[in-house]
Design a protein around this nucleic acid. Sequence first.
RNA 1: GGUCUCUUGGCGUAGUUGGUAGCGCGUUCCCUUGACAUGGGAAAGGUCACUGGUUCGAGUCCAGUAGAGACCACCA
Length: 895
Amino acid sequence: MSENTNLSDRYNPSEVEERIYKWWEGSGFFKAQDQSTKPPFSIILPPPNVTGFLHLGHALDHTLQDALIRWKRMNGFNAMWLPGTDHAGIATQAVVEKELKKEGITRHQLGREKFVEKIWEWKNQYGNRIYAQMRKLGGSYDWDRATFTLDEGVSKAVRKVFVTLHKKNSIYRGTRLVNWSGPLESAISDLEVEHKQVKGSIWHIKYPLEDGSGHLVVATTRPETMLGDAAVCVHPEDERYKKFIGKNVILPLMNRKIPIIADTYVDKEFGSGVVKITPAHDFNDYKIGKSHNLPFINILNKKTEMNENAGPYKGLKVQEARKRVLEDLKAQGSLEKEEPHTLNVGHCSRTNAVVEPFLSDQWFMKMDKLAVPARHVAESGTIRFEPENWTKVYLHWMNIIEDWCVSRQLWWGHQIPAWYCADCNHITVSETDPTECEACKSKNIKQDEDVLDTWFSSALWPFSTLGWPKETEALKTFYPTNVLSTGHDILFFWVARMIMMGLEFMRDVPFRQVYLHGLVRDSQGRKMSKSLGNSVDPVEMIEKHGADALRFSFLAHVHSGKDFKFSEQRLEGYRNFMNKIWNATRYSLAALQDFKVPTLGMKALPEKAQLSTFDQWLIYKLAQLEKTVEETMEQDRYSDAAQALYQFVWYEFCDWYIEFIKPVINGPASNERTTTQLVLAQTLNRVMRLLHPFIPFITEELYQKLPIKGSVCMLDTYPNTRNDREFLAFGSESAALEIDLVKEVISAIRNIRGENRISPAEKINVRLSPSDDAVQKILSLNRNAIVTIGRVENLDIGAEGNLSKCAVTPVAIKDSQVKVIIPLEGLVDIEEEVKRIQKAVEKLNKDITTLSTRLSNENFVKNAAEDVVEADKQLLEQSKKQIQSMQEALIRLQS
RNA sequence: GGUCUCUUGGCGUAGUUGGUAGCGCGUUCCCUUGACAUGGGAAAGGUCACUGGUUCGAGUCCAGUAGAGACCACCA
C-alpha cells in the first residue's frame, strides 16, 4: 500500500493549531445569534484579570466550558460563550504601582488622573495578551461579545444598580469599623481577610483603680491598642469584680480615666476575667462600645501608624508601638506577666499585611434582604450546584451574611456615583454626573473619590454583558445563562453575589447550574506558587505538547469538585494519544485511497449482507460508546466521557479493528473490502466528531482530510443515539460476541507466546478445537484475522487431535468454547509451559472455591436475585470445564 | 469551636440503585512486524485506613476511631 497521504508520521500540533483557529475565528464559527430558531445555550466566562497571564486554573476552567459549549453547539444549540476581562482593581493598581516604583515614582506624586491614565496604558498594552493565550487553548469564545468590566455599557449598569439600591436604602454610607489594609490604604471586605494562626503572647497589664485602692489586671494580645481604650469590662455576675462596676480605672501610659463596665460578653474563665475595651480597633469591642455609649478613640491613620490620639507613640507602626508600649509598661511596673498564646490574625489576602479594624466612612450594601431569594433558589433547586454539597456551603454563608463594604480607597475602578455638597452636606447619588446638589442646588459638589469593589461589577456580569439595562435581544435570548463554571474559591466572592444581583435586577436567576471544579495543584497536591517554583505555564505546555493534549489531560481527570493534580508526565501520555489518533487516521486514509465515496456521502450506508463480523462488532461498540458519551456529558461527567472515548479509540479501534481489517484491505477488491472501507470511513467521521469538543484542533484538521465528511467538524452534528443513527443500526450484539471470542482466541495464542517467550518472529502452528459447528463457523470466517494477528504459520480448525507436548488454553464466551492448542515440541522449554498452566489452574481453583462456597450457601440461592445466581452457576460450570482441560493438558505435557 | 470532603496496588484515580476490584502512569520481560517506539505484545502488583453493625453477600449502606484537606466562625 503506498503512502502518499501527506500526513507526517507524527502529529505536530504547532503546525496545525494556529491555522485552524484563524480559520474558525475568521469564518465566524464562534458567533451565536441574538435571535435564532435554535434553542439557546449560554455560558458567561469568569473574566480573568485584564493584565494577567493565563494560568493552569484558567486553562482547566476554559477547557471544561469549551468542551461543553462545543458539545452543545454540535447538538444543535445556539451556543454562546461570552468572554471578557476584569479590571481587577487592587491587583492591577498594585502591578502598575510596582512598575512606577521602579522609576521611583509613587501614585500620589503622579496624581489620580495621571495614574489612572498610566493604568489604561498598561491595560492597552497587556490586555490582549490573555486573549491571545486563550486562543491558543482553542476556546470557541464569541469574541464579538468580549467585554471589559470598565466598558461603557458595564459602567452604566454599575451606576444604575448603585443608584437603584441606594434609593431602596440597600446601599448606604456609614461610619463603621472595617477591615483595613495598611499597604493598600483601603478598606477591604470580610472575604478578603484570611485568618491565619500566629504564635503570639497574651500580656497581663495592671490598670490602677482611680481611688488608689489597688488595680485590675486585664489580659490582652494587642497591648498597643490600650492607647485607645474606652473602658474595662467584667462579667456582671463575677464575684471577684462585682464591687468595682461603675468605678473607674486609670489607663496606664495615657493617664486617662476610664470606667469599669459590666457585660455578659465577658467570659469569666478566660484570662483574668477583665477585658479592656477598644471600640475603635476591635470588632467585639465595637459592639460593646455601641451598646454602652463609649467614645470611639481612633489611634491609627490610614497607613496604620499611630496618630495624635496615641500621644507620645504618634508616628509609630503598630508593631513598633507594641514594643514601646510593653517596654514602658514594664518600666513602670504595670506589666504583670506575658504568656505564650496562639491566636488567629486576619491578613489581607492581597498584601498579606495584618488587617487592622479601622473606623472609617464607607459605603455598604445591605445583604439580609438580598439574601432571602438567593437562599430560596438554592433550596428549591432552581439553581443546582455540582457537586451538590456546595449547596450547603452556599446556604451557610447566606445565613450568616453581613453587610458588604463596597467602597475601596483606590483609584482604579468604577468611581462611586455619589457627590458631596460642600454647602449643605447632602449626598447626591446619580446615574449621570450631576452639575448641582439635588438638595440645595449648589454647584459646589464633589464626587466621592473612592471606587467600588471589583466584585461589584462582577456581580452584574451575567446581565451587564448582555446589554442591561437596555432590553436587548441578547438579554432576552441568553439570560438566564445555563451553566456557570468556576473554581470553588470564588463561590462567595462572585457566584453568590451574581445570584443576589440577578434576582434583584432581572427577577430571575443568572444561571441554572453552578459547576464548581477543584483548583489546580502540582503533582504532589501542593498549591502552585511562585515561591515554591512549582507553577506551570499552560502556554508553555501547549507549545510543548499541543493544546489538545493539555485539554484532554484536564477533561480525562477532572473529578467532581476534587482538586486537580497536574502532572506533565500524564500530559505526555495524552500527547501520545493525539499521536495515536493521528496515525490511525494516517493508516486509514491510506487504506481508503481507492475508496470511492458513495453518492450519499455522509448518509452512505453499507449493505447489510456484505458486512463482516468485525464491522458489525465495531459499529456495535461505537453505538455503545455514543450512548456512554451522551449519558456522561448530560451529567457533567466529562472524565467518564473522555475515558470512554480514549478506550474505544485506542483499544477497540486501533488495537483490534484496524488489525482485523488489514487482511481485507490488503486483499483483492471485493464487496467485503468495499463495505469495510465504507465502515472505516464512516467510523472515522463519527470518531472525529465525537472527539471534537474535547480535542478540537486535531479532529478538525483530520476531519478535513476524510473521504466522508461534512464541511466543518466543529459545526457538524454531534453523533449520538438519537440523531444520525441509521449507521449504528448495523451494529450487532451477536457479532460482538463472536468477535469477543475471536479476540479471546488471539489473546490465548499471544499469552502462550508471551509466557513461553516465543519470539514474535517465530511463526507457530495452532489448532483450534471448537465446541460446536456454530463456533467452527465463527473461527473459519475469521481465519484471516487469527492467522495475521496471532502470527500463525498453520492454522487447523477442527478436532483437538494429539495433545502430547502441547500448550492448551480453553477459552469461552457464554456457551461458545474453543480449545487453543499449540504444539510446543522443539519450540520451548516445556517447564515454562508447565508453570504457565499451573498458574492458570491455581487461579481457576480459587475462583471455583469462591463460587461453589457461595452456591452451596442456601441463603444465597434463596435470597439473591435469580440472574445473579444463574450467572454464578454458569461461571462455575465454565471454570470447571476449563480447569479440567488444563489439568489434562498438564498431564499430556509431562508425559 | 462548627460544617464539609477525602483515605482503593509505587503514583494519580474510577467504581450512581450492595453481587468474584477497573483505568492511566510507572515497573518487569519480549519485540524496530509497512499507521504509530509519542509504538506493539505478555506479565507482576490491591485483605478497598481501622473497628463494629445491617445483609445470604459491604469498596459500596449505618455507627464509631484514626489520619489528610477545605471552608466558616474568631474569647480579650
